[in-house]
Amino acid sequence: MNIFRFLGDISHLSAIIILLLKIWKSRSCAGISGKSQLLFAIVFTTRYLDLFTNFISFYNTSMKVVYVASSYATVWMIYSKFKATYDGNHDTFRVEFLIVPTAILSFLVNHDFTPLEILWTFSIYLESVAILPQLFMVSKTGEAETITSHYLFALGIYRTLYLFNWIWRYQFEEFFDLIAIVAGLVQTVLYCDFFYLYITKVLKGKKLSLPA
């Protein structure tokens, strides 16, 4: 464990908590893409199948349980509990264009042609594009609530910190995983536009508005 990975995990966890609290407290999922949350639930499910078979540490297991539980809770709130506030008309990204290519790619490019490894690879590829429906929705509605932009910032920063974690691990642990690194780079690049707006607008107290 290194500081970048730890801060990355904390950032990821806080993004998940921010979103849960936003929906639960405001009893509304307005402006939130249910499709992205569905994709995240798939990402965690396919990545943590070894949750019960491969014990790494208490920290690792507990974080995985929290991620999986909270992602399902978020999906449940959006599509069930508060579905009346779900803005389906603006959440129109075709997720099959994300799931099918990443699934095919995980069969073609992976470290090991075994079910667990292919599912892990699929989850890595899917996670790198899972935020697209949410970013698409923000661009369609033309703006996002401030709390939603904090959620997106924390979520984007987590994988950016993981990039530093991989530099660190390459340097000091001779550890190197090209699949995770390339997907992490793609994921971070997708946030660049949002990072720019967040830093130039939200941090100055303005509302986040994308050029529609």
């Binding site: 990821h12 491969n54 690792n60 974080m63 470290h111 995770a180």
Partner: peptide, 10 residues
């Protein structure tokens, strides 16, 4: 080939 060491990341 990456060993199982990798699976220590979330």
């Amino acid at each position: 080939k990456r060993g199982n060491c990798h699976k220590d990341e979330l």
